[in-house]
C-alpha cells in the first residue's frame, strides 16, 4: 500500500486545480445563466500567455503570471462584448448562445494550436530544481502547494467580494433577475462585463496551474469538462460548492484511474456528472 500517500496527494493537487477551474465557470454561469463552452478556451489562453511571456520572451515569473491572468480575463471580456452581448440583446435562445460558444471554443482552441503547436509543453523552466516536500512515501512540489493555496485564496476572495461588496450585491441581483436588477438602477451590461473578466481570469489561473503541473496542450475540452463537472456537483452559485466538487471529482477520477488505468479517468468523471444531473441537479451545496 505504498502508493496510497501519493494517490492522496495527487487527489489533493488535482482537487486544487479543478476547484480553480470550477470557480471561474461558476462565476460565469451563475450570473449569466448561460453555459459558455468558450470557458475552455479562456483557460487555455491564460496558460499559453504565460508560456509565451515567461518561457519565450523571458519576463520574470511574477509579472508573467499577472499578465497571463489579465490576458485570460480580457479574452473572456472581449468575447462577451463582441459575441454574447449582441446575441443577448437580440434575446437569442439558449441554444443559439450555446452553439455560438461552441464556435468560440473551437476557434480559440484551434488558433492556439496554430500559434503554439499541438505539442505538449510545460511551463516550468527547470523541473529538477523544484523544492520537494515528502509526506510519508508521497511527494508534493512547491509549485503544487502554491496551486493549492491559490485555489483556497481565490475561493475566499470570491466569497468575500460576492457577499460583502456593492459589486457582489449587484452580481447577485442580476443572477436572481436581470430585469429587476436593471429597474433598481444596476447597469447590468457593465456588471456582466466585469463578471466575465473575473470568471475568465480565474479560468486562466486554472489553465496556468495545469501548465505548471502537467503541461499544456491546446485541448480545452478536458479543463472545460472538469470545471463544469466540479461546479455542477458542488452546486452552481455556491463558491464553497465548487471547491468541494473539485476535490470530489479529483477523488473519483484518481481512484478510478488507480484501479482501472488513467485512460478511463474521464469516463468516471462523466459518470459522476450524469448521476448528479439525474438525481441531484442542484448539486451538493445548492445556492
Amino acid at each position: 500500500m505504498d502508493a496510497v500517500p501519493q494517490i492522496v496527494l495527487n487527489i489533493v493537487i488535482a482537487g486544487g486545480i479543478y476547484s480553480l477551474a470550477a470557480l471561474g465557470f461558476n462565476v460565469l454561469y451563475s450570473t449569466t445563466r448561460f453555459f459558455d463552452l468558450g470557458y475552455g478556451a479562456y483557460a487555455l489562453v491564460g496558460g499559453y500567455a504565460v508560456l509565451c511571456l515567461y518561457k519565450w520572451v523571458g519576463i520574470n515569473l511574477e509579472l508573467s503570471l499577472l499578465l497571463g491572468v489579465l490576458i485570460a480575463g480580457l479574452t473572456g471580456f472581449l468575447t462577451e462584448k463582441i459575441v454574447y452581448r449582441a446575441l443577448r440583446a437580440r434575446r437569442a435562445s439558449n441554444t443559439v448562445l450555446l452553439i455560438a460558444s461552441l464556435g468560440v471554443f473551437t476557434l480559440g482552441q484551434a488558433a492556439l494550436a496554430i500559434f503554439f503547436s499541438s505539442q505538449f509543453q510545460s511551463l516550468s523552466r527547470d523541473i529538477a530544481s523544484q523544492r520537494l516536500f515528502s509526506i510519508e512515501s508521497g511527494v508534493i512540489t512547491a509549485t503544487q502547494l502554491l496551486i493549492l493555496t491559490a485555489a483556497f485564496a481565490v475561493m475566499g476572495i470570491l466569497v468575500v467580494v460576492w457577499r460583502y461588496t456593492k459589486f457582489g450585491r449587484a452580481v447577485r441581483a442580476i443572477a436572481d433577475d436581470e430585469e429587476v436588477a436593471q429597474t433598481v438602477g444596476i447597469d447590468s451590461e457593465r456588471v456582466i462585463g466585469a463578471v466575465y473578466f473575473i470568471g475568465a481570469a480565474v479560468g486562466g489561473i486554472a489553465g496556468i496551474a495545469v501548465g505548471f503541473d502537467m503541461g499544456l496542450q491546446p485541448l480545452g475540452m478536458t479543463i472545460l469538462l472538469e470545471a463544469v463537472i466540479a461546479a455542477v456537483v458542488g452546486g452552481i452559485g455556491n463558491m464553497y460548492g465548487s471547491v468541494l466538487g473539485g476535490f470530489l471529482l479529483a477523488l473519483v477520477e484518481n481512484i478510478g484511474a488507480w484501479q482501472f488505468g488513467g485512460e478511463w479517468k474521464f469516463a468516471f468523471a462523466f459518470a459522476v456528472l450524469i448521476l448528479f444531473l439525474l438525481y441531484r441537479p442542484q448539486g451538493i451545496l445548492p445556492k
Binding site: 459575441v83 449582441a86 446575441l87 437569442a92 443559439v96 448562445l97 452553439i99 455560438a100 461552441l102 464556435g103 468560440v104 471554443f105 473551437t106 476557434l107 480559440g108 482552441q109 484551434a110 488558433a111 494550436a113 496554430i114 503547436s117 499541438s118
Partner: peptide, 24 residues
C-alpha cells in the same frame, strides 16, 4: 500539413459564431 487541420477548425468555429450572430 501541421496546421491544416487546425485551420479547418478555425473555419468551422467561425461558421458557428457568424451564423449564430447574423443568420441563425
Amino acid at each position: 500539413a501541421s496546421i491544416a487541420g487546425d485551420m479547418r477548425q478555425v473555419f468551422y468555429g467561425l461558421i458557428l459564431i457568424l451564423f449564430m450572430l447574423y443568420l441563425p
